[in-house]
Design a protein around this nucleic acid. Sequence first.
DNA 1: AAAAAAC
Length: 493
Amino acid sequence: MSDTQTTSSSTSEQVAAPAETAAPAQVRFADFGLSPDIQRALDEQGYEHPTPIQAQAIPVLLQGRDVMGAAQTGTGKTASFALPIIQMLLAHANTSTSPARHPVRALILAPTRELAVQVAENVKAYAKHTPVRSTVVFGGMDMKPQTATLKAGVEIVIATPGRLLDHIEQKNVSLSQVQMLVMDEADRMLDMGFLPDLQRIINLLPKKRQNLMFSATFSPEIKKLANTFLTDPVTIEVARANKTADTVTQVVYKVAENQKHALTAHLLRQRELKQVIIFSNTKIGASRLARELEREGMKAVAIHGDKTQQERMAALDAFKKNEIDILVATDVAARGLDISDLPCVINYDLPYNAEDYVHRIGRTGRAGASGDAISIYSDKDERLLVDIEKLIKQTIQRAEPTGFTPGEFADERGERRPRRSEDIGRGPSRSAERAPRSMGSGPSPRRDKVDPWFLKPYEPARVAPAAVAPAAGSAITKAKPKLAFLLGGVPKQ
DNA sequence: AAAAAAC
């Protein structure tokens, strides 16, 4: 949440949401008439002014209307639904400890475990001074503690669909009293094939309920989903769909496929980036790159779906706590994760799905801060770049790496071979920096510096963001129709 | 193409 709702032309001051849809900056949380117990939590966290999506969504939700929200993460989306939910539940709160008197009344569904955890943390923080109870359930973890909490009774459940269904089947939870349903990152849930699960869960809910759907992109499939599950929804769109934040400087490097990791290491070494997430298209690639960077003396950890849930949470936690500088991730981390103040994202691979580019680089430049998005690609991925530029309606700056000598590690990729000290540090006077070090240590460069380092040989000519609404025919319409299940009845199986 | 999500 940010109170920097300014339309200042200074890049570093710009808010992520475009001014034309922003609510007046004077709005304060205190104007919403929220319970003093909620207001107290907001005060304690220093939140005074709502972000644009909060300013628009909260009053509408308090009226009980359904909402279709098109907003990227980092816009304060979670609070925009969490606060009204807590408020609505408080209106009927009781302090009984009997589960029967603590039925689940609000259900929040999220596509990935990490996102569910993050939403749950937010909900807990806002409900801190209220009697409203919440919990999060997701796979990869022991069922028992989750079961115990569910059976003790909670008003708000945040869940990934699979594990929730598991709990439902085991009768650990009943959804018959749910009054509010949130589908967070609905586009992602569709992409991941959660539609049948969503359908099954929703079939168990009371017909009369308030529905909220949030999606970063606004594809025709999402609109269809909204038409199916929402009743006369109010559409709230604070950031134009398929749009990257104005405050993110984007650049691409083209190198030979077998040079990508060497260039990545070079870029990381060239300047002491405070923290960076590197996206890889594959789990194996992510692990390998993390290993190679470690060999280069950098602190890097991979996070992907083949890691245990404990490892995933530990990696994310360590990264958030600044104990790790480099997180090498698959698209498990592409969406939703609110890692504050991330100055840089690197695409080690261009994503196969152009939409994922928007999500990945959405990890930086949050809430109006500036950020750098660096992508690396090779000849064979030219088409992916074209798709991405078509989707974001921008040309991404091409750049040449300064001081990079191709061939440095040309034979290393994928090879397990003994470490040879002469392989590294062959750049002039690099050897002194060979020792493992924390990138975050020492004075880190200001992020709002003009003339980004990686654009040196080029004019930093950023393409002015075109003031265009998302065209119905934009690239995302290519997405495979996944709603046959919904629209054409039950599929055979 | 790949990744994610239930045991």
